[in-house]
Design a protein around this nucleic acid. Structure first.
Lengths: 209, 209, 209, 209
DNA sequence: GATGAATGAGTGTTCATTCAT
DNA sequence: CATGAATGAACACTCATTCAT
C-alpha cells in the first residue's frame, strides 16, 4: 500500500485546490494566473500539472469539492412543527456551507454563467439536489395538508434564490449577514417569512418558536 | 443641427452594444474577443474604438444601459388589496425587464463577481434602488399594520434573490420561466408565496385574486 | 492658366508641410499621426492625401524643402582676412538656417538614422554640398598658403559636426545658443577656435577682427 | 550561491541586448519589432519579457550600457606636450568606444531626438560628463596659460560635435573613418586641427609630435 | 475638392503549458 | 518528483489609408 504516499499526494492536491479557489474567487477564473495560484500554494507552476491536467481541471475540481460537500439529506418533517424545523435546517445547512467554503462557492458562482461544462455540473450536482430535497418535502407537505398548495418547483427556487443572494452579497458588500450571530437572526427572519409570508392576518400564529 | 448624423451614431452605438452584450453574455467578458463582437455587429474591429474607448468601456456601457432602464417608481399600495398589487408589480416589472434585456443582464451578472468597479456600479445603481423601493414599501406596510413585522432589509433581499435566480436559470437551463404565459403563472405563484408563506393555516385567504 | 488655382494649392501644401514638420520634429516620424498633422494644419486627414501620396512622401518633402533652402554659394575668400569671413559666413548661414527652419531640420535629423532613402537624400543633397563648399575653400586656401596643410575632408566634417551639435542641443536642452545675441558670440568663439586652435603660442594673433 | 545560474542569466540578457541594439540601430526603435529582436537573439518573443519589462526597458537598458561604458577619467595634462596628449586621448577613447559599441550608440542616437526620457538620460549621463571633463581641462589650461582664452563650454561642444559626426557618418556612409588604420590618421588630423586651427601663421609650430 | 467614418493589417504583451535539469 | 525558464499562440488596440457623401 502506498497509503502514506497517497495521503501526501491528496494533501498536496487539497492545498492547491484551496489556493486556486482563493485566487479564482478573488480575481475570477480568467484573471487568475497559474503562477499566482502556485505562489499561493507555495509551489512551482509546473507542479500544478502533476496534480491537475490543466487550468480548467482546477476549476472543475473546485466544483467537484462542492459537490462532495452537499448533504444528501435534510431532517424529515412529519409534524407541523417540523415544517419550521425543515426550513430552518435547509437555511442553516446551506448558509453554513457557504460561509465555510466561501472561496469555493464564489469561484464557481462567478464562472458558471459563461462556462457550459461548469454550469451543467454545478447546477446539476449541487443546486438541483437541493431543489429536489425541498421540492420533495413540499410535495409531501402539500399532500399531508401541512403546506399550502403552491407549485413546489417555483417555491423551491425562490428559497434557493434567497440563499444564493445572501451568500453572494455577504462577501461582496459590507453587509455580512453570514457572520454569527447575525446569521441566526437571518435564519429566523427568513423562516418566518417563508412560513407565513408578508401579510398580516388576524389569526396567523407568528413565530411560535 | 446634426440630428440625423447624431442619430446614426447613436444607432451604431446601440448595435455594437447589443452585439457586445450578446457575445459577452454567452462567453463571458474575458473570453469575448473584440473581433467576435465586431463580427456580430457587422463591422470591423477598429470601428468599435470609434464608439467606445476600450473593452472595459464596452462592459461599463452595458451596465450603464441597465442603470438607465431601472424604474424609479413602483405603484404605491394603500389598501390591503394593493399589497398584492405591489408585489405583483415588482415581480412583473423586474422579470419583464430581465426577459427583454436578458443579454445585458447576463453579461453584467457574469462579470460582476470579480470586477470591483462593475459590482459597485451594478449593485449600487441597479440592485440597491430596487431593494430601497421594496424596503420602503414594507416599512410603511408594517407601520400601517398591513404587513407583518418582518425585517424589511432581509425580506427585500429574499424577494430580489428570487427574481435574480429565476432570471438566471431562465436562460441557462431548459426551464424558461420567463416566456409568457409561464411568466404570468410564475408571478401568481410567487406573489402567493410571498404574501402568505408556506404554511397552511385554517383561515388564510388564498389568492383572492 | 490656373495660376491662381496653383498658388492656392501650393499654399495648402506648405501649410501641411509646416504642420507635419512641427509634429514630426516633436514626436518623431513614427509617433506622429496623420490625424495630428491634419489637426495642426486645420484640415481633415483625408485631405493630406490630395497633396501627398502617403506619410513617407510627407517626410521626403520636408527633406526636399531643406534641400531647396541650401545655399549653393558662400563668399569666396581671397585674402587672409577673408578666411575669417568665410568661416563666419558658413557658421552664420548654417546656424541661421537651422534656427529659422528648426522643425524641418529636427524632423529630418531624428529620422535619417534609420531611413535609408531619407539619409541618402539628406546627406547627399544637404550635407555633402556644404562639405563640398568647405572642402573646396580649404583646398584653395592650402594651395594659396593661407591655410595650413590639413586634410580638407576631415576638417570640413569637424566644422559641420560642430554646427550639427549646436543645432541639436539648442532646442533639446536649456542651452539655447541660437537665440541672438548669443548666436553672435557663438560664431565669434567658434571662428576663433577654428582659425587658431586651442594652443597658446607666443605670437598667435588673436581675433584681429 | 547561484553564481553559475546568475551568470547564465546575465549572459542571456547581454545576448538580447545586443540583438536589440543591432535591430534598433538598423530599423529604429519604433520599426523594430519584438519578434525581430527575439529572432535575432535566437529566442522566442515571450522570453524577452523574462529579462526586460517591456520594449522601452530594452531601449533604456541599451542606454544604460552606454552610461556604464563611459570613462570617468582622462589623463591629466600638466605640460604643454600633454595638451596634445589630452586631446588625443579624448578622441581615441571616444572614437574607440563608438567603434566597438556602434549598434548601441546608433540605437540611442536615432531615438534620442524624440524621446524625452532617453534624451535626458543619454545627454545627462553620457554626453555631459565628457563635456565636463573637457571643459575642466580647458579651464585649467587657460588658467595655466597653456590654452588660449576660449569659452570652454563652446569649444568642448565643438569637439564633441566633431566626434559625434564622425561616429555617425562612419557607419551610415561609405566613409568609414573608424576602421583602423584610418582612425589613427583621423585622430592625428583632428588633434592638429584642434590645437592649431586652420590658419597658417609664420611661426606656428606644426605637429611637434 | 474636402471630409471623416470605416477599415483591417500589424504589434506589444500575457500566460497556460512543456520539459530539460 | 519538483522546478521554473522557455515557449508561442492569442488578443486588445492603433493608425495609415480609402472612399462614399
Amino acid at each position: 500500500m502506498t497509503t502514506w504516499h497517497d495521503m501526501l499526494r491528496e494533501k498536496r492536491q487539497e492545498t492547491i485546490l484551496e489556493a486556486a479557489a482563493q485566487i479564482i474567487a478573488r480575481k475570477g477564473y480568467q484573471r487568475a494566473t497559474m503562477k499566482e495560484i502556485a505562489d499561493a500554494a507555495g509551489i512551482a507552476p509546473g507542479t500544478i500539472y502533476l496534480y491537475f491536467s490543466d487550468k480548467e481541471d482546477l476549476l472543475l475540481s473546485i466544483a467537484e469539492q462542492l459537490v462532495a460537500l452537499m448533504p444528501q439529506e435534510v431532517p424529515r418533517a412529519a409534524t407541523p412543527a417540523e415544517t419550521r424545523r425543515f426550513v430552518q435546517s435547509v437555511l442553516r445547512q446551506q448558509l453554513g456551507l457557504v460561509a465555510e467554503y466561501r472561496p469555493f462557492f464564489e469561484a464557481i458562482t462567478a464562472e458558471m454563467w459563461t462556462n457550459e461544462t461548469l454550469r451543467t455540473n454545478y447546477l446539476g450536482r449541487v443546486i438541483t439536489p437541493i431543489l429536489g430535497i425541498i421540492e420533495s418535502f413540499l410535495h409531501k407537505g402539500i399532500e399531508a395538508g401541512r403546506v399550502r398548495s403552491l407549485d413546489p418547483q417555483i417555491v423551491s427556487r425562490a428559497m434557493v434564490g434567497t440563499i444564493f443572494l445572501f451568500a453572494m452579497i455577504s462577501d461582496t458588500s459590507a453587509e455580512d449577514y453570514l457572520r454569527s450571530p447575525r446569521v441566526e437572526q437571518l435564519i429566523e427572519e427568513l423562516t418566518d417569512f417563508f412560513l407565513y409570508g408578508l401579510k398580516q392576518t388576524p389569526d396567523t400564529e407568528v413565530s411560535p418558536a
